[in-house]
């Protein structure tokens, strides 16, 4: 139990340090994901399984996917393709994969041991929920308003002025399909015949 905590903590520290010293953004992101997973294992060993699950789902799942998506989106075009080929060479992902492998083995041993690993004063999800919607209800409301503000702000900042009107194809589906001689795929595009 103690050992699992220290191993996960060491993995988290190493992954975070490697993330901070990377020059390339995608490499840093890979190490950051491993770091978040390691912190989730630390939470589990500390007796906070609910928060550990949330860390994996929300942080490593949602927020990191958003990061990777934006980073990849900013490198459009052929230059971006070359860069991505260069980024994902085998030498790059072995480091994060090694650290993640340590974590997987550790989680396997912890889960195989059942809930015995959570013996020392685990805080159940039920208690967290009762506290969340009891004395902290106003905080929950404030968090929801903050999330709404974040949503509106992100939408406003991400809005791009449409320069030319969007071309609409396939408004009259039956006509388009007849013109494309029955091919539904070509009927939805701007070309009616398949060009070699």
């Amino acid at each position: 139990m103690e050992l699992a905590f220290y191993i996960a903590g060491a993995v988290a520290v190493i992954a975070t340090f490697l993330m901070l010293t990377r020059v390339n953004v995608v490499h840093a992101l890979l190490y950051l994901i491993v770091s978040l997973l390691a912190v989730a294992v630390v939470f589990y060993t500390l007796g906070a399984p609910f928060v550990a699950a949330l860390e994996v789902i929300v942080y490593a799942g949602a927020i990191m996917v958003l990061f990777v998506f934006v980073v990849m989106m900013l490198n459009l075009g052929e230059h971006g393709v070359e860069l991505e080929k260069q980024w994902l060479t085998p030498g790059i992902w072995t480091g994060p994969a090694l650290l993640a492998g340590i974590l997987i083995i550790e989680v396997f041993y912890l889960v195989r041991g059942g809930t015995a690993g959570l013996a020392t004063g685990a805080v159940e999800p039920k208690e967290v929920g009762i506290a969340l919607f009891g004395p902290y209800l106003i905080g929950v409301e404030l968090a929801s308003m903050l999330l709404l503000a974040g949503l509106v702000g992100a939408y406003h900042l991400g809005f791009r002025k449409v320069e030319k009107p969007e071309i609409q194809y396939g408004r009259y589906t039956a006509e388009r399909r007849a013109a494309a001689s029955g091919n539904p795929v070509l009927a939805g595009t701007d070309q009616l015949a398949r060009t070699p």
Binding site: Y59, I63, F67, G153, L157
Partner: peptide
């Protein structure tokens, strides 16, 4: 929750 909101706005700004 705060980190999620902050990341959404921050990445929109970056873009």
């Amino acid at each position: 929750a705060m980190a999620a909101a902050e990341v959404a706005v921050g990445l929109a700004l970056v873009r």
